[in-house]
Design a binder for these strands. Structure first.
Lengths: 199, 199
DNA sequence: TTCTAATGTAATGTC
DNA sequence: GACATTACATTAGT
């Protein structure tokens, strides 16, 4: 099987993505552009007209361009290569082909699959806190929204989480608190400005 | 109909938002306390049943906090006030209470019900983009899948949409692109693992 | 049913 | 650590 045939199977969108590829060489330095040019309403639209603030498509880099060598299932992500486990994929495929992936795959297997795909995507797999973890984190937060490293470590132990996750959680939680507060303030102001409808 | 009875019908979530309110006045400066006490593992857990406030709906706060005066069912949404039809709500609640809403209602009624519930629960009504809006958004997306605020604002103007909608559209579109890409990658792997039947 | 608008929040990057 | 932004998982409307 040639890689050519494989490439042909890639959806059109993919091809489009490829051709309109990224990587700053077509990035114009000027940011003065008309909406028409962006919309392609004015003239020829080659992809050079892009003002692109940021093309972040890590998962596209390289792989799509690599037309020849796919004997090794290591997909380059950032600077390291993550093995995509063939056996997992094959297993998956067999099950999928039979239309029974969901049914006959263990939760663990599905998890493995998802996790690998996540790696492939190159981001830390999103942590799904349990309800009880959240509960405890919220309790702590109510008391102290700026826990020091010691408390975070203890929490990490108790909750079987990385201390990193705890830290991020508190950061996001503080941001949320702030946002909520801002919004409620806004509503208060608004209410005071709105003539009371009852009278 | 008194406002009280209606207020009681307000989802628990709402109450949780209220009671689990915020505002850093409980920020302790000390970080010396036992983890057990923080975690609430030692004694009674009353309000600790947590708000986890998974759904934060700024436009509902006003409504939820207003416990006394609700003779008028106007919910502040997005800067404008949308009348919530009392009779519909009452009808809804009665039926729901009786657990027979699904059974005895016409399709139209159910639709109305769902729609009002959506309002009631505070979800933004789904935007239905027109064909031409989509076309233009797709054109822009092909060129730049991460438009900055400036481009988004211009798009919003041109398309008579909120900038928010534009942003969400691009987020969802990127997710879709990624999904498609993943799926095509999957096909590549699959094809390479499948013995080629042609030759 | 499939697709996708909308939501909440974990993760990332910049300062 | 704040803040802005993005990705991701999920829900729900059509």
């Amino acid at each position: 099987m040639t890689s050519g045939s494989v490439c042909e199977a890639v959806p059109r969108m993919c091809a489009e993505l490829q051709k309109g590829s990224f990587l700053g060489n077509n990035r114009t330095t000027t940011s003065s552009f008309s909406i028409e040019s962006i919309l392609g309403l004015d003239k020829k639209r080659d992809f050079t007209s892009t003002p692109t603030s940021r093309h972040y498509r890590p998962w596209m880099d390289e792989y799509c361009n690599r037309e020849t060598d796919t004997s090794c299932w290591r997909l380059p992500i950032f600077n390291c290569e993550i093995p995509l486990q063939v056996h997992t994929v094959r297993h998956m495929l067999e099950k999928e082909t039979a239309g029974q992936y969901d049914k006959c795959c263990s939760a663990t297997e599905r998890l493995t699959y998802k996790r690998e795909m996540s790696w492939y995507r190159g981001r830390r797999p999103r942590t799904a806190f349990t309800r009880s973890q959240i509960e405890i984190l919220e309790n702590v937060f109510r008391v102290n929204s700026y826990p020091g490293i010691d408390v975070r470590e203890e929490l990490a132990n108790k909750l079987s989480l990385d201390e990193d996750r705890i830290q991020i959680w508190f950061q996001n939680r503080r941001a949320k608190m702030k946002r909520c507060h801002r919004e409620s303030q806004f509503l208060i102001v608004k209410e005071s400005l709105t003539p009371n409808i009852q009278e």
